[in-house]
Simulated scan of single mutants.
Amino acid sequence: MSDYSDDDEVDLGVSLETVATVVDHVRALQGKEETEPEQASEDENSEAALLQETPDDMTEAALRAFLGELNEDEQASLIALAWTGRGDYGPEEWDEARALAVERNDGRDIGDYLLSMDNLGDLLAEGVAAFGLSIEDVER
C-alpha cells in the first residue's frame, strides 16, 4: 500500500467514479489495435477481429470529450493522480502536485496531455492507491 495515513483525509478533487471511468476507457482503448479489415473479417471470433474497434466501443474522441467536460479542478486532479501514480509526487505532496497541475493545464488540451502518457490507466489507478483507495471498489 502506501505510507499515507487513513487519518489524513484528502480531497482528491475528482470523484473515484470519474477516475474509474477514465481508467476503464483508457484501458479499453489500449486493448484495441489496428488490424487489416480483411484479416478481421476472415473469422469474426479471431483475435484480430476481437481487438478491432467497433462503433459500440469507447472511442478516443469520446474520451477526449469526456475529459474536456470536466471542470478545471477535476482535470488538474487527474493530472496530479497520474503524476502520483508515476512516482513524481507522494500523497504528502498532493497540494503541491495539484497546484502545479492547475498551472500546467491552463489553456491546454487535457486529452492531448493525458493520452500521451504511457499506461495512463495504470498510473491513475496507482495514484488512487497511494491514498489507500481503490477504483476497483467503484460500481460500474
Rank of each mutant, 00 (worst) to 15 (best):
25 H>Y: 05
129 A>T: 02
16 L>P: 06
12 L>N: 09
135 I>W: 01
47 E>Y: 11
1 M>A: 14
138 V>Y: 04
74 E>W: 04
46 S>E: 09
54 T>D: 02
129 A>H: 02
98 R>A: 12
132 G>F: 12
90 G>T: 15
121 G>D: 04
100 L>V: 10
30 Q>M: 06
102 V>Y: 11
54 T>K: 09
24 D>N: 08
9 E>I: 14
126 E>M: 03
71 N>T: 04
15 S>K: 13
4 Y>N: 11
45 N>W: 14
59 T>H: 07
49 A>N: 04
44 E>V: 13
128 V>W: 08
70 L>I: 05
46 S>T: 12
43 D>V: 12
14 V>S: 12
47 E>L: 07
39 Q>N: 10
2 S>Y: 05
85 G>L: 02
9 E>Y: 14
13 G>I: 10
89 Y>P: 12
3 D>I: 09
61 A>L: 09
41 S>C: 02
90 G>D: 14
115 L>Y: 01
134 S>L: 05
124 L>I: 00
7 D>P: 01
12 L>M: 10
14 V>P: 13
114 L>V: 02
139 E>H: 09
23 V>G: 00
42 E>H: 11
1 M>G: 11
95 D>S: 15
128 V>E: 03
10 V>I: 07
16 L>C: 02
63 L>G: 02
30 Q>L: 01
81 L>R: 04
